[in-house]
Simulated scan of single mutants.
Amino acid sequence: MLKEFKEFIARGNVIDLAVGVIIGAAFTSIVKSLTTNLINPLIGLFIGKIDLSGLQFTVGSAHFKYGSFLDACINFIIIAFVVFLLTKSLNRFMKKDPDAEPAPTNEEVYLEQIRDLLKDQQK
Score class of each variant (00 low, 15 high):
30 I>K: 09
14 V>R: 04
20 G>V: 11
63 H>Y: 06
60 G>F: 03
95 K>H: 07
82 V>W: 03
102 P>F: 10
49 K>T: 03
35 T>W: 10
104 P>M: 07
85 L>K: 10
68 S>T: 02
116 D>M: 05
100 A>T: 11
21 V>C: 02
83 V>S: 02
123 K>R: 06
100 A>S: 08
74 I>S: 03
102 P>N: 14
75 N>A: 07
1 M>C: 13
116 D>V: 14
66 Y>L: 04
43 I>F: 00
6 K>E: 15
69 F>G: 01
63 H>E: 10
37 N>D: 15
33 S>E: 12
7 E>K: 04
64 F>C: 08
100 A>G: 06
36 T>F: 06
64 F>N: 05
61 S>T: 08
8 F>N: 05
52 L>G: 03
105 T>Q: 12
66 Y>K: 03
31 V>I: 07
71 D>M: 09
122 Q>P: 06
33 S>K: 05
93 F>N: 12
20 G>A: 14
117 L>D: 02
44 G>F: 01
51 D>R: 06
70 L>S: 05
37 N>A: 13
70 L>K: 01
9 I>D: 06
62 A>Q: 13
89 S>C: 09
27 F>A: 09
61 S>V: 05
31 V>A: 04
52 L>D: 00
120 D>F: 11
22 I>Y: 03
13 N>F: 15
12 G>T: 08
83 V>G: 04
38 L>Q: 10
22 I>L: 14
50 I>R: 06
84 F>E: 12
90 L>W: 15
85 L>D: 04
116 D>T: 04
3 K>F: 13
83 V>R: 02
39 I>W: 08
6 K>Q: 09
93 F>L: 09
35 T>L: 13
4 E>H: 09
59 V>G: 08
26 A>F: 11
3 K>I: 15
106 N>H: 02
77 I>V: 13
96 K>L: 02
58 T>Y: 00
25 A>M: 13
55 L>H: 07
29 S>I: 10
82 V>D: 09
42 L>S: 11
6 K>T: 15
95 K>R: 05
58 T>I: 09
68 S>H: 00
83 V>I: 15
9 I>W: 11
84 F>V: 02
50 I>E: 11
32 K>Y: 00
81 F>V: 00
8 F>A: 10
34 L>N: 07
56 Q>I: 01
120 D>Q: 15
9 I>S: 06
68 S>R: 01
84 F>A: 13
15 I>R: 13
92 R>C: 09
19 V>Q: 00
104 P>C: 02
3 K>T: 10
26 A>S: 07
37 N>I: 02
57 F>A: 11
39 I>S: 03
8 F>H: 11
2 L>D: 15
56 Q>A: 06
52 L>S: 00
92 R>E: 12
